[in-house]
Design a protein around this nucleic acid. Structure first.
Lengths: 152, 152
DNA sequence: TGGGCTACCATGGGCTACTATGGGCGTCAA
DNA sequence: TTGACGCCCATAGTAGCCCATGGTAGCCCA
């Protein structure tokens, strides 16, 4: 099951390094991508992270837009222009750029949140709040689906 | 019959481990998932647990929503972000995170409740109360069905 | 039908490997 | 030269692995 699941909170050390959670590293290793693809999430104060699978997904999204169109150029810039590929050290740690840390208000800790095919990095408190909101909305959504369809 | 049925109450040991009931382990083994997928239930003070079948169900639910939509992101966060995959030790025990234990008010015991394709973990007293309520509602429902059709 | 035996299960505890984290040192580049 | 980063080693805490034990439920046999 090569999915990013669960969430973890790790801390930055004095050098600004932080460990990627071991289970996530295992998924990345299976993905065959030697490194970590990172980009700011478009609609949340978080970073989207992943491996080959995530990059492919983004390419597919771009391919769905007409070549040379304004939308495609914008999206490509927004997504790839702001992204980085980081290398993990032999202990599975990486150095998060100042730009990213400032954008997320990260100080001494960061939350790693599994989202299936990718994972996100959040400021822990902010994520806790976001999770509560998401749960509330998901409850409403589930209720609607439950009425229309079957199951759950 | 690969369903989670019946309910069991087991206790946490000094290390915080707890045994998954043997019948449930048998179902998980048949499911072919080496581990236990756990997430907070959206609408009850309980945890939803299961194997591959449960994860697939969630993926299917997500896939039914448009990619990059707000609903999908919310649901993915609420479902996957709050979930964990735990491994069972060779005796079929697992370690429940502090987060989950606190959320359910679990102290020294936990109730494992079969729900067909998944099972739930409850604080035993709370579950007893919930069961009574459910029974009452079920009686009402049965009575209504009994009136329309025949049978019982 | 009753008594004894056995296999399974929940639980306990020791040990080890792994993980997250800390810190030193060399190298490369500004 | 100095700072930053990559590589390496050290360490505490913990999660997983293995073996032990007591109780019980099911089974067999008389």
């Amino acid at each position: 099951m090569d999915l990013f699941l669960s969430h973890f909170v790790n801390r930055f050390d004095a050098k600004g390094r932080i460990s990627a959670p071991a289970p996530f590293r295992a998924v990345l290793a299976k993905d065959g991508f030697d490194g970590l693809f990172i980009q700011p999430a478009l609609d949340a104060p978080a970073l989207d992270c992943g491996g080959k699978a995530l990059v492919k997904e983004i390419e597919a999204l771009l391919d769905s837009l007409p070549p040379y169109s304004r939308e495609r150029e914008d999206l490509a810039t927004a997504l790839f222009g702001a992204s980085e590929v980081l290398r993990l050290d032999s202990e599975g740690r990486f150095l998060l750029g100042e730009r990213f840390r400032a954008a997320l208000d990260l100080t001494d800790e960061a939350a790693f949140v599994g989202c299936g095919h990718k994972f996100q990095i959040w400021e822990p408190r902010r994520f806790a709040a976001h999770l509560e909101e998401a749960k509330t909305r998901a409850r409403g959504l589930k209720a609607r689906i439950g009425v229309k369809g079957q199951r759950e």
